[in-house]
Write a protein that binds this DNA or RNA. Sequence first.
RNA 1: GGUCCUGUAGUUCAAUGGAUAGAACAAGUGUUUCCUAAACACUAGAUCCGGGUUCGAUUCCCGGCGGGACUACCA
Length: 606
Amino acid sequence: MQSEINPIQMNLESILTTSVFEAVKTLYSVDTEINQIQIQKTKKEFEGDLTVVVFPFVKAARKSPEQTGQEIGEYLVQNNPVISAFNVIKGFLNLNISKKYWLETLSEIHEDASFGIQNPADDAKLMMIEYSSPNTNKPLHLGHIRNNLLGHSIAEIQKANGWKVVKTNIVNDRGIHICKSMLAWKLFGNGETPESSGLKGDHLVGKYYVIFDKHYKAEIQELISKGATEEEAKKSAPLILEAQKMLLAWENNDAEVRQLWEMMNSWVYAGFDKTYEQMGVSFDKIYYESETYLEGKSEVERGEALKAFYRRDDGSVWADLTGDGLDEKLLLRADGTSVYMTQDIGTAKLRYNDYPINKMVYVVGNEQNYHFQVLAILLDKLGFEWGKNLVHFSYGMVELPEGKMKSREGTVVDADDLMQEMIDTARETSEELGKLDNCTPEEIQSIALMVGLGALKYFILKVDPRKSMTFNPKESIDFNGNTGPFIQYTHARIKSVLRKATAQGIDFSSMISTNLEISDKETNLIQLITQFPATVREAGEEFSPALIANYTYELVKEYNQFYHDFSILKEDNQALIQFRLILSESVASVVKSAMLLLGIDVPERM
RNA sequence: GGUCCUGUAGUUCAAUGGAUAGAACAAGUGUUUCCUAAACACUAGAUCCGGGUUCGAUUCCCGGCGGGACUACCA
């Protein structure tokens, strides 16, 4: 599956590897292990395109690294027509690849409409990717943004690597949290609705979650002042008792509670839909906890019958995981209501019933590492052979300079607000620079959307997903430098040149000549382009959109230098003009594909 | 206490065990009769500490120190 993904780049590397293998065998009479042959891109400050590390061969050669490199280099130049020259510095053998090879390669890439992107075959394996997974008691915030962008991007990347992908979302629509919002609304809401308040539905419900917490805290304080311990107070405050009662009523299908629940959830979904739409994410299949938790409950009961789990005197059900080096885990509360883990068991089972899943991936923050460790063990204990194969794609938290975001302390960065802020800034910048003076209001809006969201998405996705990242709300996200807009700008610039070329009647549909003297900057650009397929593959294996982001940045940075130092349309040599147009168009095309893998659109002008 | 993650310029991020540790932002300085200056160029600035493995360690191992997460009848 892999070697077919990118014949172009794979060819060069495997050709060179083979040549080096032969060289070492011929010169020193030893068979080298293939993974000992390390070929890397030559560093900028040295002459050459690709570099062979010679240290692994010096033992066999019984010569100095320099001399070994020299001998291998001579062999390669004589025996491989693709290699035009070499030089040795310390233990590094730098190879020049012939210009003709690069030009032919560019020509091939230019013909390939889906360069670097593999379309899933009919019999491709199926990967289900869960992401987003919101609670219905509060609006989405910056942490969800990272989750959603990662989920969406990883789905795109896996598709580009030939997987069939089902994007799924488990909505945590039931439980004690939503009862808190419901109760607060009932007590303090005076019938407020999204329509009456003008508030987006998810924000309205979130408001009552906060109101609940405020009153709950006050009750706790009062109880403490009357001599209760904090723990006692938390458990016995009237509001929390009331919320628990409501949860029980909900699980018992109480008509009034269910009606309230449905109404408030419908507000939330309308709000979420807007947020998702603006963010550009979507799902193929949505599961609701309210529809899966009963399956989870019956699985827990089955587990109890299997003696995998046990029931305590108070009626609560537990799994003893001390044998696995973990603690005991609650699966059903004493009052019979279910917890997060219960429904996750049910959801997993239903998914495997619904789809022929080859790989199940959960995009969930690293704060839940323990949860997924436990989930895998529990499913295994229940006899599901796939239980241990679940992949928890564990990404780092988004932190503020002061530390973790806390909804109760009002330090969360709201997703809707942040996106709007980015879009507004993009529009203002465009206006200041006078870039879009000839555009219609609709075009201006569409570009502001692309650029503002591009800045946000790139900012999030360029960071290694496993690492936690810092977001400083006081410093707005940049539009210059290593940013989404910089990449988008490069694309727009190229498109502008291509439009001019077309207007002048220049044909650059295919390459006239591969016998051209091209500069090092240009060969380097071609070489960077050839690395795109390998980057997509690596991003898929590593589950890392950041690799795509960093690759694209390197490519456009290089292109901007080229753009600055060379002229395209004002060149005298027609063949060179055509070559540079093809080069530019290929860069634009890779940039567009790469950004699409990140869920970022690129504009034709900006 | 236990388990896990993490520590790179002032800041935000890079670097399959390979060359002189790369960028960007912020600071300072240049480039526009020339295809989009949201650009390009230049200057200054960093691997937490101590051992080990290796021809070679930011990377792997051990021990410190610092930061974080989890360890709920929350999700």
